[in-house]
Nucleic acid binder design. Sequence first.
DNA 1: AAAACAGAAATGAATATTCATTTCTCAATG
DNA 2: CATTGAGAAATGAATATTCATTTCTGTTTT
Lengths: 195, 195
Amino acid sequence: MPRPTPDQTLQKIRAALVAEVAEKGIGATSVGAVAKRAGVATGTIYLQFDSKEDMLQKIYLQIKTEFHGLIVAAADEPSSKEMIRKMWFEMFAFVDAHPLDFMFIEYAGAAQVLTAKQAKDIAYTQTEITAMIQRAIDDGTVAELPVSVVTTLLVAPAMHLARTKALRLEKLSKAQVDITFERVWLSIAAAAQPS
Amino acid sequence: MPRPTPDQTLQKIRAALVAEVAEKGIGATSVGAVAKRAGVATGTIYLQFDSKEDMLQKIYLQIKTEFHGLIVAAADEPSSKEMIRKMWFEMFAFVDAHPLDFMFIEYAGAAQVLTAKQAKDIAYTQTEITAMIQRAIDDGTVAELPVSVVTTLLVAPAMHLARTKALRLEKLSKAQVDITFERVWLSIAAAAQPS
DNA sequence: AAAACAGAAATGAATATTCATTTCTCAATG
DNA sequence: CATTGAGAAATGAATATTCATTTCTGTTTT
């Protein structure tokens, strides 16, 4: 059996970290357990990362970026309503495909793993999403509300649903997600034009 | 200066724990730091609690119960719409008055400090809120949607706003909260009866 | 006197980190 | 083709830290 490439080793560590955190939470995750789960020696982790903290930060940034990338991919959709719908459903596609990754970024976000500087560096993600919403307001698809209000109305229920889905707290049918989106849409849609 | 009563000591410890966790997160909170912040000796904490875990659990349950108590106080409101509006605004009143307490229950909730049994014991809080929403659906004030959908539409934006408020991420005016509630209401309200 | 507390030090277990050593890969050499 | 020797990767036991918890003593309060 050939020795895995360094990249493969990195992927094994990432998968192990994510699984460990999703299962036990950030606090109960030890470097030793991650190493064992990844099938590598503890020392190997320190070839890839400076410290446990560094490992958490780098992998968090990675996954967060991937997640964000999928969502803003909706930006090229010409119809604003379709764009927003797409943002929503891309998010659920991510949770479906990578529930552990989603749990990981939830936990890591709450545990404040990033430094202040790192947090600043990814603030652009928020900016990009804000711009997408602003576009929908400007073209009259979405009501004339402060962007932050629209963001709250749109993002919060989506994240809430994604969380229950990732935790499998309850069954979450496609129909339920659909109906929730339609209802969210009511809260942000511009009033129908009087004919 | 008279010696503080045991209860006062307990309150100092609680305040220190909450502040420490709100500031640094659960993971970075040490018993020593809590004691120092409370102005008590480390050993004193162990007169009040069995362990660090016990301390986190008891104080979490305390605050969570207080928080919940305020919200369900709205249940005696005869008008269903007023009841739901009151739930919302009681929550913000709590966050205004005790932002650190709010952050604490957020972090502690995410870090799963409770045992499975304890988690079961406070599940009634969710049940009570569900019942209030169900009432509003039954009397035709809120649309005929699954309760879980209404809960998502109602609770998620409120918690999202409360979080930004507690973190002072951005200014959050009364007007902004008001408008958000009105918009949320659009998403859950029953369609106007044709006259 | 009994109980609560401060203050400070000691213990011990958990676990993050280091590093001397081994294993592997592969290209250069004979 | 077989050998060899860097250099990269990986190992895992040893070490260093961190902290929760305990245990003292002396003091204050009721």
